[in-house]
Design a protein around this nucleic acid. Structure first.
Lengths: 127, 127
DNA sequence: ATTGTTGTGCGACCAGGTTGCAGCAGCGAG
DNA sequence: CTCGCTGCTGCAACCTGGTCGCACAACAAT
């Protein structure tokens, strides 16, 4: 409802998923320079409470945000950082197995899968 | 080879997997109070290079370390923080699918699955 | 004893995120 | 029109997990 929130949502919609809070802050501040970092976080929090956005923890601490209707899993390349999207369905069998065997209910989309993308898997690797 | 390293490895072995660097530091410092935090991190790094230990990113930034021969996936409960272990085999099909469809090679064990454990899934939930 | 290497303790630093506080905008009641 | 409430905001300080540069200690080789 406020300017800051509207700007944030606009930025979120404009970005096609996986934006970090930092990216978001940058985009918002381009048009509204006096919107503060903490406002971004707080608003993001609020939007999450409302179920409008969701965040995913990519490997290295930073979280990325996306609209809740943009459902997919994230494959994060450890080498180049590229994020590949994969449909939920691929994970359905796994989710079902974990549920029946462990009673563990996956929070969909809320985890990233680390590994190497096609390009980097082919490259000579150190680690 | 040095005292600090020996203590660290001992602590790692004693802990049955998923210890945070912090936990480790605490345990080590119980017996060797003058071992520094940064030494823990550096040694952990060194041990990773050697392929002796591996770390997993649990949802919230903190990483947990475990011996490389202790291979399993981690199911992290968002509600209670409990970590359930699940055998790699459960994930094999998924890994294969991602590989053939996306050329994406999962780094095994290097990601945690977030969700709710049996106990917390049953409990009334807010989020 | 001297040199070189390696690991270490230490404090400063960094990034990502959170919090407490004070100001202000919006809005209904008087 | 004014008062007072509520909720959002800007800001700066803070917290946590982790890293870095530096100087020193241990130890092996010469």
């Amino acid at each position: 409802m406020t300017t800051a929130r509207r700007a944030l949502v606009t930025a979120l919609v404009a970005a096609d998923g996986h934006v970090t809070a930092d990216d978001l802050a940058e985009v918002v501040q381009r048009n509204h320079p006096d919107v503060h970092r903490s406002t971004i976080y707080r608003t993001l929090d609020a939007l999450e409470q409302l179920g409008i956005v969701d965040h995913v923890h990519l490997g290295h601490g930073r979280a990325v945000y996306h609209l809740t209707d943009d459902r997919h899993q994230h494959l994060v390349c450890e080498a180049c950082g590229h994020v590949t999207e994969a449909p939920d369905e691929l994970f359905a069998a796994l989710a079902a197995a974990l549920r029946t065997e462990y009673g563990f209910v996956i929070r969909p989309n809320h985890f990233a899968v680390l590994g190497r993308c096609r390009a980097c898997a082919a490259a000579p690797v150190s680690s």
